[in-house]
Nucleic acid binder design. Structure first.
Lengths: 189, 189, 189, 189
DNA sequence: CATGAATGAGAATTCATTCAT
DNA sequence: AATGAATGAATTCTCATTCAT
């Protein structure tokens, strides 16, 4: 039994894993965030057991589906953290995150959750939080952002805005408006 | 068939209705927002059918439970709409609504929803929206609030803030902070 | 809601209950003691939910199926307890119990179990134990039975004998032999 | 294909076999007699396939785990068969067997079963049966034991006693008592 | 020989809603 | 009006066994 961080999957296992992920993404794209493992297994043409082997539950699958976006977001945050204009960077980061959260059902859930099923998710969120925290501090020192908000608060407030948009019609104009309220909401009082 | 505006209930029917509502409130207070009609019927000591007669589904029951708070909120909004200082009135109204939404599971759901199962709920929300709309206009004219927000947006943003608070720990300090971001978020850009 | 010990069932409910019990008995008679509620529901032509309403689990169903025999056994024990010849009564009681346990799959399980799912089962076992205890004391005083055995031990030893017979072929002759060893086993040393 | 009586195992195969057996024993010692081959494989750090290669099923594994005890028991029986006092030897043999059966989950199952998955088990049981049969005959001739019991019956009755003890609490005193009933049960009527 | 991914039937249980009583 | 029995699809998860690598 070889021990290493990332176990390389056997070719067929990797193929199945991808199939499941693809179907899961399709389900989410179709507006169904229940992610029933049985249904997904059937649609993916694999046994239920296979799905359970790769993803021990809905949450794990959700995190796997969102991991690419989460990583992308973390990268964005890291690059933003060192940008010349903290406030502008922060706004752009929020815009990016909100867009993703709106277009990828389930992403907000992962982002706002205080816990995670998979250690990799926790790690990615930490990366994001660290970078965002740095960005926040810089923006705060510039007097642009209130000082009592932590990275986790931003994640939660993002989730809140996503929720507000999702619970009714959300034409582009409204998305823009709510995003604007979100950025405004961070100003010092 | 008698003609009536508000259906007068037979004494025993009214008693049953109240029992069901009381139990539903208890369940919500206990942190269970699933509002399973079977369970509620059992706890209330009535048949499921009786619950269904009074409330044709979870949503209807939820709205009935929240109606008192919703009415209270509408009244507050109406009184706020004519207050001397629109902005202060608005803030106080938001504080009140958020507090209720946090303490009464299900209230935010009713408040933010674009639809309703019961006509009375729709009516109450309209009352609220009309009053809040008036207040918003006044605050906007004072230059305190951005002009592109309608009453329904405020309800949705309130729901968003509630969601953000509920998805993690929310000690009083955080509630205060998030409320503050909510009020700030309405400022013109 | 009327309160009483034995709720009388609605006619159709009673019919369903009986159907389920009949099928359960058939399954047991066919040598299947798994008593899968799904299967039983299907065979009985009722919904699974109906089975669960009447019997909240395998154990409850098993006890319901065995209750008639258990009651009969308790009655026998009560009558035996006052018989003229304690030892003969005891032997006959054991013979009766063993016969039942062999012919009714599941009965031994209920009889030997230290716990019960249904209060009625507990009550019946208590009745049996009291009567058997009395009989044991009388037989002990006559010097026919060792003094360190309680009624629950007899139930367990009966279960043991049943087990020994069931785990291999058990033609009538062997049943008789093992029953004989059981009665012999109670003698003082 | 090499011809062989006892298959000599390759060193690593032997090591794997031992690992699996060790884990299986641990599981049983921990009170889990389900012996799920997947679980055992994982705990042993080998693939399921490896477990299946060595032991084609739960029963085979169980027998392998119990084989040492079974052999020990056969030896005891053989030595007992030639002892000076058949009855005393028999009692001691029963005491030994019962103790093992109680302390080693699964041993009673192997002992009482009329069939076996592995030929070695069958052989060991035959050895035991032959020796015990001899002992029984001697004890019978002495008038201490009833004549209608065969070795297989003793195995079954032992299993019964084990079952009776296992289905409830079994403090040492009770073990002693039930063992006493077992030995008593063999007396001629 | 060893591996462990895959299988997929199957088991247990729940719950929203209907409708006969 | 009230009752609560019945429904049964739906959901979650397990595990013995096979077989491709």
């Amino acid at each position: 039994m070889k021990s290493r961080g990332e176990t390389p999957l056997r070719a067929d296992a990797a193929r199945n894993r991808e199939r499941v992920l693809r179907i899961a993404r399709e389900q989410l794209a179709a507006g169904d965030d229940s992610l029933q493992l049985n249904t997904i297994a059937r649609l993916a043409g694999v046994g239920v057991g296979t799905v359970y082997r790769h993803f021990p539950g809905r949450q794990a699958l959700l995190e796997a589906v969102s991991s690419a976006s989460l990583e992308k977001l973390a990268e964005r945050a890291e690059s933003a953290a060192t940008g010349a204009e903290p406030l502008a960077e922060l706004h752009e980061l929020l815009r990016f995150a909100l867009t993703r959260a709106l277009n990828e059902l389930g992403f907000a859930e992962v982002l706002e959750s205080p816990s995670a099923a998979d250690a990799r998710t926790t790690a990615l969120k930490s990366r994001f939080d660290r970078a965002l925290g740095k960005l926040l501090r810089r923006a705060t020192q510039d007097g642009h952002v209130r000082a009592d908000l932590r990275a986790s608060d931003i994640r939660r407030l993002l989730g809140g805005t996503t929720h507000a948009l999702r619970c009714g019609p959300h034409p582009p104009r409204l998305v823009k408006t709510y995003l604007s309220t979100l950025t405004t909401s961070l100003r010092p009082t």
